[in-house]
């Protein structure tokens, strides 16, 4: 992508370059959709653009956002993690129970993170050692994690762990003015994962493995290890999301994570990640999560009868991916034209 901008003629103004950059961006479609939503609602539903609403919307989207970022890494490396939602619930349960046992806060957090990493390693082992397809290995892991949580809680939510710090962790009590801790955490996760993907060797390997396993293997990449590492990333992001969720939800029921895996995948794919691997962006995952949260927010604000909610969500999903598709086609045309311009043929 960046090569297009680099090879563009020097005489191009900054505006042109930014424009070119945006056009070839796979997340352009969803960005356009978001802007469209904002524009339409500015005229029809002013309350949507009120700062307090946008603030709520952002806060609500953070859990899915963090999950979607982890999911993006897995998708880039050519896998899929269906266990991410239940892992989130399991980690929330571990954090909450550790607090109840009287462990100090940081120990509880470490326990939760360790659980997430362990689940990630488990997924990686099932896939690389036993040779299970990703879909099935993580579906089985979903079963294990939810089973453990049900047996452990007997269906009764875990309560009585909410120390004041957990209200801050969950974003219920703002950290500074109106800045909440989950916002900072999400930003950190985004910076770290974006950095890893964009400018480290590991990041390159994720893309390489996802684009072509045999190709990566032939160029000496230890594919199995890289794939496992991708699942550790998603396990850890599930743990981070779980810790926030424990604070936000103020109790941990066994079905806390139900459906979150689908939301995370949807957010990542809306943001331009390809289920076939090798493609995806952290910024896309962020925009995808915000799109999903905005959809529910709009449904609530407009007052769509709740029976129509699912239909609207389904339609938005198709629209978002169609928008990306259109932007890809447009960017293809633009690139073709630029190539023609470079060859000196008038477009």
């Amino acid at each position: 992508m960046s090569t297009t901008a680099a090879t563009a003629p020097k005489k191009n103004s900054l505006v042109d370059r930014v424009g070119a950059r945006l056009l070839v961006d796979p997340t352009l479609g969803v960005l356009a959709l978001l802007i469209l939503i904002c524009l339409v609602s500015a005229f029809t539903l002013p309350v949507f653009l009120e700062p307090s609403n946008l603030y709520n919307l952002l806060n609500t989207s953070l859990v899915v956002m963090i999950l979607a970022m982890g999911m993006t890494v897995v998708l880039i490396s050519g896998g899929i993690d269906l266990s991410i939602g239940t892992t989130m619930a399991l980690c929330a349960g571990v954090a909450a129970t550790s607090m109840k046992f009287g462990l100090p806060l940081f120990a509880a957090l470490i326990a939760a993170l360790a659980t997430g990493a362990l689940v990630g390693i488990g997924n990686g082992l099932l896939i690389t050692r036993l040779g299970l397809p990703d879909f099935i290995a993580t579906l089985a892991m979903l079963g294990f994690a939810s089973g453990i949580l049900y047996i452990w809680t007997k269906g009764v939510p875990i309560i009585g762990y909410m120390v004041p710090e957990f209200y801050v962790i969950g974003g219920l009590t703002p950290l500074l003015a109106s800045l909440t801790l989950p916002m900072i955490i999400a930003l950190l996760v985004a910076l770290v994962l974006g950095g890893v993907l964009g400018s480290t060797r590991l990041g390159t390997y994720f893309f390489a493995v996802g684009s072509s396993k045999t190709g990566a293997m032939q160029s000496g990449i230890r594919v199995d290890r890289i794939r496992t590492q991708a699942y550790i990333v998603s396990g850890l992001s599930a743990a981070v999301a779980g810790i926030i969720m424990a604070g936000r939800n103020t109790n941990v029921p066994a079905d806390l994570g139900n459906g979150y895996e689908i939301q995370a995948i949807a957010a990542a794919v809306i943001g331009g990640a390809a289920l076939s691997g090798g493609r995806g962006r952290i910024l896309g995952a962020i925009l995808g999560a915000i799109t999903l949260a905005a959809t529910v927010n709009l449904i609530n604000l407009v007052g769509v009868p709740s029976s129509y909610q699912k239909i609207v969500i389904g339609a938005i999903l198709i629209l978002a991916v169609l928008a990306n598709r259109i932007s890809a086609i447009v960017s293809g045309i633009v690139r073709q034209r630029r190539a023609l311009v470079l060859e000196g043929i008038p477009a």
Partner: peptide, 14 residues
């Protein structure tokens, strides 16, 4: 040319 996972996820909801 939309991904089948997402299309069928959408129709699941619809």
């Amino acid at each position: 040319g939309i991904n089948d996972f997402i299309v069928t996820l959408a129709t699941l909801n619809i």
